[in-house]
Design a protein around this nucleic acid. Sequence first.
DNA 1: TTAATTCCTACTAAATTACTCTGATTTAAA
DNA 2: TTTAAATCAGAGTAATTTAGTAGGAATTAA
Lengths: 135, 135
Amino acid sequence: MKLTTKGRYAVMAMADLASYSENKPVSLTEISTRQNISLAYLEQLFIHLKESKLVKSVRGVKGGYALDRPASEIKISNIFHAVNEEVKTLNCKKESKKGCNNKSVKCITHNLWDKLDTHINGFFENVKLEELIKR
Amino acid sequence: MKLTTKGRYAVMAMADLASYSENKPVSLTEISTRQNISLAYLEQLFIHLKESKLVKSVRGVKGGYALDRPASEIKISNIFHAVNEEVKTLNCKKESKKGCNNKSVKCITHNLWDKLDTHINGFFENVKLEELIKR
DNA sequence: TTAATTCCTACTAAATTACTCTGATTTAAA
DNA sequence: TTTAAATCAGAGTAATTTAGTAGGAATTAA
């Protein structure tokens, strides 16, 4: 199981914003240079970050992005959710689980994957952007 | 981030073995039917499970596979490792981390991904095959 | 008016996943 | 001794997903 660049880049970009956008909006060109992520790719990510109200934008020259709430109120899970970085331990729909009787091996491992989901998502729920950048 | 079928199927197959191979070896055909996994795919997985000494094989008619150690001594991490289901939160090599100075955003998130790695791998280290099948 | 920027959609190349296919080898049982 | 059920082994392939690129439209400070 691996993390995609989408999620990784989104967190890096948000950490960059948290570090540099205190006084003025930060342009994606700046982030692109600092973090070595393609500008066009960042643009796509920020559309979603904006939709999720994690960042706000200023258009035009001298424009850019800034956090839309304090870094202390943004969880990693918020960022991942915004860019559709999902934790998926099953590829079937949750509904298919209903079909299981409690004795089948399939169902036994379903319980394992459910716990794994909870375990991983719990991690993302408990880390805030602020913690990343302080220190 | 998502779990691949390789890892999921390997755990399902091992749970099946743990449930059914107490007295006689279990053929992959049986597992294939019970778990609805293609025979040819299972064959590939079991080559690796055998190399890692998690299962032993009996060739020929009436042959099959059985656990090579008690289910209480097999961790999920052992199974994942056997079939190369890896947890990868970075796509770069670990060495590149050395290049980081502690102030860069890149390095800050590196620490996060390292913790995530540890968090997920810890889960797999702490669940044994036995726990899956009892109850 | 210009240039720097966000915004938007479609497309594409590369990588990975999830298999299939073919055939060899082994061995219990008829 | 033959047959059929099984493991063993490697190569090939189709489908999906990822990781971008490309091309422009809209906005706005200077």
